[in-house]
Design a protein around this nucleic acid. Structure first.
Length: 482
RNA sequence: UCCUCAGUAGCUCAAUGGUAGAGCAUUCGGCUGUUAACCGAAGGGUUGUAGGUUCGAGUCCUACCUGAGGAGCCA
């Protein structure tokens, strides 16, 4: 039986020996003051117990060990108690028998409150009945801080509403499902970094404060601080990426992004993380190949390292295993035909709505790439198709299972005069783009790149209903705290 | 900004216009293999706010507040 935390995979890498510890003696004295030592005479001294994480328990069966964590749940039956301890690496079911423990220890644990911090000492063994497969026989325990029953832990093991949970998001993160999601998020971010780092890209991060809009000012947050000019929070690092790509060849930036759209759907965050690669001497085809490789690499890593978390999330892993290259590649024209056949009211020249994206992704069992959008729905910097100037060399990658656009990008205009004309056509102030135009004055080359939304990717791979669960502290319209 | 839905115990939810209830949580008691343990008992309420209709409003009407889902927009 999978429990996620409890069934965390055994460490793949050699685990460095845990430092010897003397219980809470490593805590600052202010914390130690409240600790209550429940050590029982006759059992080994504290210093004989090696501190381990719950994930490491399988490698230390039969040894005197201690785990330091929080009380996740407690079941009791007269003279036997089953405290479930979580420590961030997993959940361990412990067993305490009244006859084997001191009165203080047994009563202290028996009356312990949810999420009290506690150190448990004893020995682990394999146990079929325990969630996670291992169980710890308690020899002694030390309560670091007991949660008062006058203010019990608000998130009980029962159901809660969304508003309540996100009002208590700082505590909500301790629960099994949220823990699993953020573990997958970490795996995805690490995979993204590893992919680019091992494929010749250099990380060059871009500014958060930007003086001008990439794609118009309506969706930007204005910052009133700098003396002489209005400054905005970035909505994309792409223009800067084009500069760094001309310096390093292949670069990427990875940071927070801000969109001030008054948008209120399950796909939107006001503040989200985006990774944006940019490549010199590259075309639309290079973008499609890189995007496909990147997605496959990420999915592979998640399947390799986060099976237990996917099980907690009850994710249909077969859907993820189906995500293999080559992804279907269709043109915008073909997409419009498919949508019309499926009853959409889309007309050529318009952008896809959320339901259109869902309809399209239903056609395929893996992500689909849609390229050559009408120039009018794309940003000013997109390179037009040589043979069909009315379409732009841009591509969107729509995730499978209706999760919508996770990647958008394409080839940028490299011709000076064409770019200047497009800036004017879009009523943008050319002087603000002088440095950007410089990139076309001094050794301009065809270049291309894309942006991938981290949270949408996490939401997709975890199979979530709502994107707000994919980030520790979501920022949305009407939600800025905690 | 617009459309739809919802606000009742700490939490999740019931309650034909007629005495506000249950489960969980908390407290007390019982139980030596529990799996969101179980069994018994207790405490816990200005029904989102302000007005109105009515003999009587949690329930009907109006406005507002808060939240959720969606549209537009977007990764």
């Amino acid at each position: 039986m999978e429990t996620g935390l409890g069934a965390a995979p055994l460490p793949r890498l050699a685990v460095p020996p845990a430092p010897r510890t003397e219980g809470v003696s490593r805590l600052p004295s202010a914390h130690r003051l409240r600790a209550r030592d429940l050590h029982q005479p006759g059992v080994p001294l504290m210093s004989d117990y090696r501190r381990i994480t719950i994930a490491q328990a399988g490698a230390h069966t039969g040894e005197p060990v201690e785990i330091a964590g929080w009380l996740y749940n407690l079941r009791k039956s007269g003279k036997i108690i089953f405290p479930l301890i979580r420590d961030g690496s997993g959940i361990m079911q412990c067993v305490g028998l009244k006859n084997n423990l001191s009165e203080d220890c047994f009563e202290g644990l028996k009356n312990l409150t949810q999420e009290s911090s506690v150190i448990i000492r004893g020995k682990c063994r394999a146990e079929e009945r325990a969630p996670g497969g291992f169980e710890m026989d308690i020899e002694s325990a030390e309560i670091v801080q007991r949660v008062s029953e006058e203010t019990p832990y608000p998130i009980t093991p029962k159901e809660h509403g969304i508003e309540f949970l996100f009002d208590h998001r700082h505590l909500h993160l301790r629960s099994r499902r949220q823990h699993a999601i953020l573990k997958v998020r970490h795996e995805i971010i690490k995979a993204i970094r590893d992919y680019f780092d091992s494929n010749g890209f250099t990380l060059v991060d871009c500014p958060i404060f930007t003086p001008a809009a990439c794609e118009g000012t309506t969706t930007l947050f204005e910052v009133d601080y700098f003396e002489d000019e209005k400054v905005y929070l970035t909505q994309s690092g792409q223009l800067y990426n084009e500069a760094t790509a001309m310096a390093f060849g292949k670069t990427y930036c990875f940071g927070p992004t801000f969109r001030a759209e008054k948008s209120k759907t399950r796909r939107h965050l006001t503040e989200f993380w985006m990774v944006e690669p940019e490549m010199a001497y590259a075309t639309l085809d290079d973008v499609k190949r890189t995007a496909e490789e990147l997605i496959c690499f990420i999915v592979g890593r998640v399947l390799e390292n986060r099976r237990a978390e996917l099980a907690v999330l009850e994710r249909d892993v077969a859907k993820l295993e189906a995500i293999k290259g080559p992804f279907p590649r269709i043109s915008y024209d073909e997409a419009v035909e498919i949508l019309k056949r499926k009853g959409s009211e889309i007309v050529w020249g318009g952008d896809f709505g959320g339901t259109d994206e869902t309809l399209l992704s239903e056609e395929f069992d893996r992500p689909v790439m849609v390229d050559r959008y009408p120039t009018q729905v794309k940003a000013f910097y997109f390179q037009p198709d040589e043979n069909r100037p009315e379409v732009a060399l841009g591509v969107d990658v729509l995730a499978s299972e209706g999760y919508g656009e996770v990647i958008g990008g394409g080839q940028r205009i490299h011709d000076f005069n064409l770019l200047l004309q497009r800036i004017k056509d879009h009523d943008l102030p050319p002087e603000a783009f002088n440095w950007y135009l410089d990139l076309r004055r001094f050794g301009s080359v065809p270049h291309a790149g894309f942006g991938m939304g981290v949270e949408r990717t996490v939401s997709w791979l975890c199979g979530l209903e709502h994107i707000r669960e994919t980030i520790a502290f979501p920022r949305m319209l009407y939600r800025t705290r905690p």
